[in-house]
């Protein structure tokens, strides 16, 4: 009788042995005229070259700068296919940089409230407790 293999589906677990940053592209869209884009314009033309520094520190993220009418938005593209547009109108330079950093750290998954400590896909390591697996002299006697 041939031995049948037990089929197992592999689970994608980013971060186990290798890690790929989920955010791969950011497009920074601003308006050259509007007042709500002032913070983004300051950010792009900052004497400390903030955008250059961001790009240098995050070489696995593609930065795209678009000049377009309307309020400024940053669009973050994630590896799970999600695209998130973040409104950055009327923000100061520091806040713009913080927003950019914050959304680059995300994975694009839905945010969730987690009232436990550990999320696990593995089977219970310690097993289910059973009274019959305890040695006879260790069992509770009434």
């Amino acid at each position: 009788m041939p031995v049948k293999a037990i089929p197992k589906v592999s689970i994608p677990r980013n971060g186990v042995s290798s890690f790929v940053r989920p955010c791969y592209k950011v497009s920074l869209q601003y308006c050259n005229w509007g007042g709500s884009s002032q913070g983004v314009r300051d950010f792009l033309t900052h004497p400390n070259k903030l955008v250059d520094r961001f790009a240098q520190n995050n070489k696995d993220v593609m930065f795209e700068i678009l000049s377009k009418g309307g309020h400024p938005t940053f669009t973050f593209h994630y590896a799970n296919g999600q695209k998130q547009a973040v409104d950055v109108r009327n923000l100061k330079v520091g806040d713009v940089a913080r927003k950019l950093q914050e959304y680059m750290h995300r994975s694009g998954n839905e945010p969730f409230k987690f009232n436990h400590k550990v999320l696990s896909n593995n089977e219970s390591v310690r097993g289910i407790w059973s009274p019959f697996h305890v040695a006879k002299n260790d069992r509770h006697r009434i």
Binding site: V16, F114, H116, K117, V118, L119, S120, N121, N122, V125
Partner: peptide, 8 residues
């Protein structure tokens, strides 16, 4: 924790 778990 075990290997592959996620701590939140």
């Amino acid at each position: 924790v075990t290997k592959g778990d996620k701590i939140v």
